[in-house]
Computed example of a mutant assay.
Amino acid sequence: MRLRARGALGNASGRFERESRVAVDDGWEMAEEERLLQTEVREERPRSALSYNRSPDLPFDRSVNPYRGCEHGCVYCFARPSHAYLGLSPGLDFETKLIARPGIAAVLEREIGAKAYRVAPIALGTNTDPYQPVERDWGVMRAVLEVLAAWQHPLAITTKGTLVERDLDLLAPMAGRGLARVGISVTTLDAGLSRALEPRTPLPARRLEVIRRLSAAGVPVRVMVSPVIPGLTDHELEPILAAAKAAGAVAASWIMLRLPLEVAPMMQDWLEARVPGRAAKVMARIREVHGGKDYDPAWGKRMRGEGLWSQLVAQRFDKAVAREGLGVKLPPLRCDLFRRPARTGDQMSFW
């Protein structure tokens, strides 16, 4: 199977599978057609739309995910292990066997329209990118946005995708009312490294242009230096912040590389194949900031790491943010405008 623009180098079985599959030469001297690995999309009819969490280190308590899996193929993606729950590999399956959730917008409208519902900002793009390439054909994210705009429901988006520009007709008016903001993730400014690390994402220069266009339309944009990969991309922290500020970003954040479960060996294989001279250094630094392990999932540590090196990154970030004027604390998204949209046949108010 030929790979083109894929992040993972293999397709190891998920942690819940009892069997593993390995490609071997069967000994038959017969030429076999080598096919290009294609993206497949199948549908899921969701029974619920809102996912709730109680994590004390997250700034939101609910989210919506229009897709499972992500064609962007970022090799470092912390969400890859979620594909194991579907009986699929967190490797190549995660970026080629996708689940679209058409109908989730209608389910979401039913949930936020329930009498017991209490409004709070909804996060979009917390697990997989809602503006990955397949959104162009499926439009699931667009349908979700249309519901939230109609109800004047606050939302925050995280993405690397350029398709967010398509939805400025909805996002700009919402942002003007204090209902929407967008976070754009920039991992590196090196186009070659970006293409290897996150093969189907827009290149860094194009992401900076997305920041510019959203900002020009009045949408507050936070640049997310995420993830910071110690020994590989950490030296770019200050240049990324400066470039994002020049493009119009008004705030910034950073997250240390996270390698949960199957992602750790996957990332190590990628390092040894793509940057062999730096692989040992990168993995040693990763373990240094995670208490000697590939990853520490403890709240308060998983996003930042710990120890001297993590503290140095945090200090550098704080100084660069202050220098660039990105230390703005954005006002809370408004919840007081939330209301049921008018429907055909509704009785009109006299006031």
Rank of each mutant, 00 (worst) to 15 (best):
Leu197Tyr: 05
Thr187Ile: 15
Gly192Tyr: 08
Ala205Phe: 01
Leu189His: 03
Arg181Gly: 13
Gly192Arg: 15
Pro202Phe: 03
Arg206Ala: 14
Pro204Ser: 11
Ile184Glu: 13
Gly183Glu: 14
Thr187Ala: 14
Arg206Pro: 00
Pro202Glu: 01
Ala180Lys: 01
Leu197Ala: 02
Val186Tyr: 03
Arg195Phe: 06
Thr187Tyr: 03
Glu198Gly: 00
Ala205His: 02
Val182Ser: 12
Glu198Phe: 00
Asp190Met: 00
Ala191Arg: 00
Val182Asp: 11
Ile211Leu: 12
Thr188Asp: 07
Leu197Val: 11
Leu179Phe: 10
Pro204His: 02
Leu179Gln: 13
Pro204Arg: 03
Thr188Tyr: 12
Val210Pro: 12
Asp190Tyr: 08
Glu198Ile: 05
Pro202Val: 12
Leu189Lys: 11
Arg206Ile: 01
Leu203Gly: 04
Pro204Cys: 07
Ala205Met: 07
Pro204Lys: 03
Leu193Glu: 10
Thr187Pro: 08
Leu208Pro: 00
Asp190Ala: 06
Val182Leu: 09
Leu179Gly: 02
Leu179Lys: 06
Leu208Ala: 04
Val182Lys: 07
Leu208Lys: 05
Val186Gly: 01
Arg195Lys: 15
Ala191Asn: 00
Thr201Leu: 10
Arg200Phe: 03
Pro204Trp: 08
Arg207Gly: 14
Pro199Ser: 12
Ser185Pro: 06
Leu193Lys: 14
Leu189Trp: 06
Leu179Ala: 08
Pro202Ile: 04
Leu203His: 09
Pro199Cys: 11
Gly192Cys: 06
Ile184Ser: 11
Arg206Asn: 07
Arg195Met: 13
Thr188Ile: 08
Thr201Gly: 13
Arg200Trp: 03
Ile184Lys: 04
Leu193Trp: 14
Pro204Glu: 02
Arg207Asp: 09
Ser194Val: 13
Glu209Gly: 09
Leu193Ile: 13
Pro204Gly: 02
Leu197Asp: 10
Leu179Pro: 06
Ala191Ser: 04
Arg207Lys: 14
Ile211Ala: 12
Leu193His: 10
Gly192Phe: 09
Ala191Leu: 03
Leu193Phe: 15
Ile211Lys: 10
Gly192Ala: 15
Asp190Lys: 00
Ala196Ile: 04
Gly183Gln: 14
Arg200Gln: 10
Arg206Leu: 11
Pro202Met: 06
Leu197Asn: 08
Leu179Met: 08
Leu203Lys: 03
Ser194Tyr: 02
Val186His: 10
Pro204Val: 08
Ala180Arg: 02
Pro204Gln: 08
Ile184Ala: 12
Val210Phe: 08
Val182Arg: 10
Thr188Trp: 02
Gly183Ser: 15
Ala191Tyr: 00
Leu179Arg: 13
Thr201Ser: 15
Ser185Tyr: 06
Leu203Arg: 11
Ser185Val: 05
Gly183Phe: 15
Ala191Thr: 07
Pro202Ala: 15
Glu209Ser: 02
Leu197Ser: 07
Pro199Trp: 10
Arg181Ile: 01
Ala180Gln: 03
Gly183Asn: 15
Thr188Gln: 03
Pro202Arg: 01
Arg181Tyr: 07
